[in-house]
Computed example of a mutant assay.
Amino acid sequence: MKIVKNTESLEIRSFPATTTEEITEADSDLFFQVVSTDLEPWQVEQVITPSSVQVRQEALLAVHWHPEFVPMKHIRTRVDAMFPNREVELMIPTQHNVLMEWDGYSGVEVDCFSSGFNRKVQLLLHFTNDKVKDAGVLKSMLAHTFKYRSGQLFEFMHTITRPDEARIGKAARAVGADRDLIEFVRLNVAKIQRLLDDNWTDVPRLSVKNKLLRNWFDAMRPDLGDNTVDRVQAYLKAVKKLVKQDFDLSFFYRASEIIEEVRGLGGCIVIPHPEQFWPILLRDYDVDGIEVWNPQSQEYTEFLISVVNEQNERRSRDMLIFMGDDCHMGEKTKPADQQDKAKAAREIGLQPAWDDLSIRKKLIVNNISRRSIINEYKERLEG
């Protein structure tokens, strides 16, 4: 995503007196900056420069991370700089609903439907490349599911521009949005809709998701100021939450259908985001492992490790323990003052819980470490 780098932010109190949906040249330029997946030199520099150097980490396990639109060559440069002394590694990208590969392995994070609990969940799917070379059915399932994010974007935009009075009113009350803000957002989103329609064949599909609206308004910070844009983003977030709550879950394949297809191909499955997806843990699905730690899910790590260790005593094949960094590389291409700080802090392969003393006590009991999981999971993937 190409964005003009901003070093200063002018604070203003009111919204511009925009009263028309007419597309200006400036609007068109902004649109193509926001949807672009090309990187400027300063963005490449940010991508290849890690936040820290982990000189003592010798094993690198990363099976939950999102390249987004960042070229793999730049990601490799960052990883090499961050973990200069690694001796063993297992890295598998897990783009949302898009199968991608890295050094002989392919992976994807797929959205699906847990019918027993009537909710959307996600699964991490991992393969050796040869096992998905001719996986036509799985690839068709992923292609269908990929449309979820673009479909939700259009519903998100329609909610704002029609407008859907019930959702708009509820979102506005939740964040204290006034009429001027609501109308300003409506006019801008209407422009985005028209620009998408007029330029559909030239827009990268990776850019057609809810983040498009957030990125559009973030790019206006130099003119509107941080306080104004933050108010807009709070309102957008409230509307998006309501849209996601009402999304028709029948769109997704059932988790059991995804698992069956993966097993038929000889692939492996990990459950991510444990605290978000408690129900899927209770279903006892046929999976290889669960994340017990994630930047968004840290509260129950020790409890989950204890549960897995206890249950493994009764299993013929161990449930493996993973920790997911959930790194989104696209966040690192934004100007520092426009980044989501929590998301930007995530790094591929950086999972501090492995080295936490109290957590390590529970892992050591069952001889679990990054190295042991790498070795065991490679055997399963290649079996």
Rank of each mutant, 00 (worst) to 15 (best):
F154H: 15
F117K: 11
R370Y: 07
W278V: 14
A174M: 12
G151C: 10
A234P: 01
V70I: 15
L99P: 01
V365C: 00
C112V: 04
E22K: 13
P352E: 10
F303Y: 11
K362P: 03
R179M: 12
R56D: 15
E291K: 10
N294V: 08
A234C: 12
R314H: 13
G264A: 03
N6P: 00
R231P: 04
P41R: 09
E25C: 02
L357N: 12
E347L: 11
T201G: 03
Q245V: 11
I280W: 05
T24G: 03
I168A: 04
R315L: 11
E155K: 14
P67V: 09
E310V: 03
V262L: 05
E261R: 06
P272V: 08
I359E: 01
W293I: 08
S207P: 04
G104N: 07
R173T: 11
E40H: 00
I160Y: 04
Q54E: 15
F113M: 05
F217R: 06
T7V: 10
V47Y: 08
D38W: 00
V308E: 09
P71E: 07
S306E: 14
V121K: 01
Y285C: 09
G225R: 01
I374M: 07
D80M: 12
V4I: 14
I258Q: 00
V308C: 12
R56Q: 13
V239I: 15
F251S: 04
E40M: 11
G225D: 06
S106R: 00
V208F: 01
K341E: 12
T161F: 06
D103N: 15
K343C: 09
Q233D: 14
L61C: 10
W216C: 03
F146I: 00
D198G: 05
T301A: 09
Q54M: 15
V137Q: 11
R173G: 07
R231K: 15
V232N: 03
E260G: 03
R254P: 04
D318K: 13
R56M: 11
P295N: 06
V35Q: 03
I368A: 04
V4Y: 10
S140Y: 02
S358M: 10
A143M: 11
F247W: 14
H66R: 02
R346I: 00
I3R: 12
R162W: 02
L61A: 04
Q245G: 08
A143N: 10
A345N: 08
P67H: 09
L61K: 07
V53G: 00
W42D: 11
D223Q: 14
Q57D: 13
H96Y: 13
E291T: 10
R380S: 02
K139S: 07
D337T: 12
T228L: 15
V365W: 03
P295K: 09
Y377V: 01
V137S: 03
H126E: 02
F31W: 02
V53I: 15
K244D: 15
N129C: 05
K240Y: 12
E257H: 08
L195R: 08
D248N: 14
E22H: 07
F154V: 11
V4M: 09
D202F: 09
L90M: 00
R263K: 14
E21F: 00
R315K: 13
V34W: 06
L242Y: 07
P163F: 05
R315N: 05
L61F: 05
F31V: 09
I92Y: 01
E21M: 09
L90K: 05
N97P: 02
R149A: 11
G330C: 09
V292P: 06
R315G: 01
T18K: 14
L60F: 04
D38Y: 05
A166S: 13
E109D: 08
R78T: 02
